[in-house]
């Protein structure tokens, strides 16, 4: 049978519009597949017209071919668009089904807490490291030499009474301050030296809300040429500003410690009342915070450092006291108590 080209034109158009309608009305993937087979299937649809084309004159064949291609592309685009709609709908269904109560707590343990002394200590370690100070450790069980003699506190020196000492059967003692680490630092590194030594110290005292036999100090020392009181004050102010995160007013007054000469007590203006007087500063406006001074030449000499060539400053900061001030802790026993209700606050 020889179809007229105009009939062929119409048939293609009819098939195209019928198929487009069917694609548009497909409700399921199966409907859409049936529509696709009808329009583009090997045996039906547009393919049946392709067979006819061979019989056409070349110029007609070219025109009909273009027509068929256009119809095919239209249908394919329509099918693809319809498929996308189905996929989107399916995705929406899945997404909706996956509703989750995000207010539920995350499983697994919560993050733990560092001890408040660790926190303060680390801050200070970082600060002093940035200022070029080494962070040194020394033993908790010390020799009498390092804890006393090398610090210019010979036997029978009344200053030994200032520090009630735990003695051990070996003749050693529990260090009463972190100062022996100064001596170990000088022995190990020699001058020049910048070091701090945070750590646990012991005094034989009964425990109550404000006294502990176990507490924490941070010793500091700098040895160089011509270290002066002006340098000491500079470091102390820098240290305190970093700790309290504000500028603090300090004062130095004479204080006696055998390993420094001159020796000072450094007070800070009370941060609670600003210096006008309150119970925390016992109405004085000042809080005693750290003993310090220029290193006694005997101490240098004992560690084989020539005091005519080198000198330095040293200070001892009460980490326990600092932590208590910083966090408003009113009972020192909490720090060694291991009570999570306390520790989890930090």
């Amino acid at each position: 049978m020889m179809l007229s080209t105009s009939m062929l034109d119409r048939s293609i158009q009819e098939l195209e519009s019928r198929s487009l309608a069917r694609i548009a009305s497909a409700k399921t993937r199966e409907d859409l597949e049936a529509a696709r087979v009808e329009a583009l299937g090997r045996k039906g649809g547009l393919n049946q017209f392709s067979k006819e084309m061979g019989k056409l004159p070349p110029e007609e064949r070219k025109r009909i071919g273009a027509l068929l291609n256009a119809a095919k592309q239209n249908l394919e685009a329509a099918i693809e668009a319809r498929e996308r709609t189905f996929a989107e709908a399916a995705l929406n269904v899945r997404l909706d089904a996956e509703w989750l109560d995000l207010t539920l707590p995350a499983p697994g343990p919560r993050r733990g807490h560092l001890h408040p002394i660790t926190r303060i200590q680390r801050e200070l370690e970082e600060l002093f490291s940035s200022l070029g100070f080494a962070v040194l450790d020394g033993p908790e069980v010390e020799t009498e030499y390092h804890n006393f003699d090398a610090l210019n506190i010979p036997p029978d020196h009344p200053a030994r009474d200032m520090q009630d000492t735990f003695w051990l059967e070996s003749g050693n003692l529990l260090r009463t301050h972190t100062s022996p680490v100064q001596v170990r630092g000088m022995e190990r590194f020699g001058p020049p030296l910048r070091m701090i030594a945070p750590g646990r110290v012991f005094r034989n005292e009964s425990v109550d809300a404000s006294h502990e036999h176990t507490f924490y100090q941070l010793e500091g020392m700098m040895i160089d040429r011509d270290v002066s009181v002006a340098h000491l004050i500079y470091f102390m102010k820098t240290l305190l500003a970093a700790i309290f995160k504000r500028d603090v007013t300090v004062r130095l007054r004479p204080g006696y410690f055998p390993f420094v000469e001159p020796g000072f007590e450094l007070d800070i203006q009370c941060l609670i009342c600003g210096g006008s007087g309150c119970p925390v500063c016992k109405q004085s406006g000042w809080v005693e915070l750290l003993p310090c001074g220029l290193v006694h030449p005997n101490v240098l000499r004992m560690s084989n450092i020539d005091p005519e060539q080198w000198n330095g400053f040293a200070f001892g900061l009460g980490l326990t006291r600092l932590a208590m001030m910083r966090y408003g802790i009113d009972d020192i026993r909490q720090l060694q108590g291991g009570d999570l209700r306390f520790l989890e606050q930090f």
Binding site: F133, V229, H231, R251, E261
Partner: peptide, 30 residues
């Protein structure tokens, strides 16, 4: 050194201006 204290305490340590030291920029031992 003992005399530094005698003079220092009488002139008053608050008369000393804080001053950063000039030191070698060496990294501290780790």
């Amino acid at each position: 050194d003992d005399l530094v204290e005698e003079v220092g305490r009488m002139v008053g340590y608050d008369s000393v201006t804080p001053q950063p030291p000039l030191v070698a920029a060496a990294p501290p031992p780790r």
